[in-house]
């Protein structure tokens, strides 16, 4: 080349974090460059896609999202097995949506039971995600942490209001935690500092920057993730050098545009393809901004994203 490619002086590396227990664990992170900037650094681990499983049959999913799982929605373990067996899921994310006091308010004991069943049914790492209700998550995730001590889980969301309780649980039972803050670099950093102060080892923290769907605030999260990565890789911001998890499937499939039929919105085309593309695009943009684990729903969307990731990694060139 007649001119030199202008380079970025990277001076940091994302920590490598292993989720799950031997031999079924996966490692994420380790990047020494911006996402897919392979001409100037390395991504030793391909980002991972986790497939969603719900603890109770979903009530309000669009047909397109429900269809692949219609035969298993009543049995989380079978659902998880289908994800792994039929769709090649590399991780499972158990969403404990029904534990929300504003939903069915499923008791913590029940959530433990479901978690155990799902964990026993699969041979890939398990992510367990609470309902987002701070107090209930404390109770539920803490109990899961204790009762499922033999599994090495990724537990989220761990927020500023629950970091002590859940951080301690991680310490006691060796689970990895998703440190969750609302779309802000400094808050993310602060929570990571707090977890460090509590004694949670650095190899058990993953950042959850809180994400929104395409067309619904995606740009905020996208930029926060880019800034996280910039700080981690080029500004020696050691408390941001963690992998990032994006729990996006549930965000995409609740937006209006994944729910409208072709009759209701002829300009939006086929609802299945539209929903799949909305989810795939949301995921891909987050991967470009620094996502290491994306939690997704639809098998077709996952396949599309996987294909594109491989292309970006240069396979098939």
């Amino acid at each position: 080349m007649s001119f030199e490619i202008p380079t970025i002086s990277y001076n940091g590396v994302i920590r490598q974090i292993t989720v799950g227990k031997e031999p079924n664990c996966v490692t994420v992170g380790g990047e020494s460059c911006y996402p897919f900037y392979l001409f100037e650094g390395a991504m030793p681990h391909l980002p991972r896609i986790a497939m969603e499983v719900y603890d109770a049959p979903p009530e309000d999913w669009p047909q397109a999202a429900l269809e692949p799982f219609a035969d298993v929605v009543h049995d989380p373990a079978a659902w998880a097995q289908k994800c792994v067996g039929s769709y090649g899921a590399e991780m499972i994310a158990l969403q404990l949506a029904s534990t929300d006091p504003n939903a069915q308010d499923t008791p913590a004991e029940k959530a433990v039971e479901v978690t155990k069943k799902v964990a026993a049914a699969i041979n890939v790492p398990l992510i367990v995600w609470g309902s987002g209700n701070l107090e209930k998550d404390k109770e539920v995730l803490r109990m899961i942490s204790e009762r499922c001590a033999e599994e090495t889980l990724l537990l989220g969301p761990v927020e500023e209001g629950s970091y002590k309780a859940l951080g301690a649980a991680s310490l006691a039972y060796q689970h990895t935690i998703a440190a969750s803050t609302p779309i802000d670099v400094n808050l993310a950093k602060q929570l990571n500092i707090l977890l460090g102060n509590l004694g949670v080892p650095d190899d058990r923290i993953i950042i959850d920057p809180t994400v929104g769907a395409l067309g619904y605030g995606l740009e905020f999260c996208y930029s926060v993730m880019e800034r996280d990565r910039m700080a981690a890789l080029t500004q020696e911001d050691e408390r941001l050098q963690f992998p990032i998890v994006c729990n996006l499937g549930k965000e995409v499939w609740k937006i209006k545009e994944t729910r409208l039929s072709e009759e209701e919105a002829p300009l939006l085309g086929d609802p299945l393809k539209r929903g799949v593309l909305l989810e795939a695009m949301t995921a891909l943009l987050f991967l470009l901004a620094g996502g290491d684990i994306v939690i997704m729903r639809h098998p077709d969307a996952i396949q599309l994203v996987r294909g594109l990731m491989n292309e970006l990694m240069g396979e098939g060139v």
Binding site: E146, K164, A165, L166, G167, A168, L171, A172, L198, G199
Partner: peptide, 12 residues
């Protein structure tokens, strides 16, 4: 120890 120690760490 595990069960009760957690309470020492999280401040309960």
């Amino acid at each position: 120890l595990r069960k009760r120690g957690v309470e020492f760490v999280d401040g309960t």
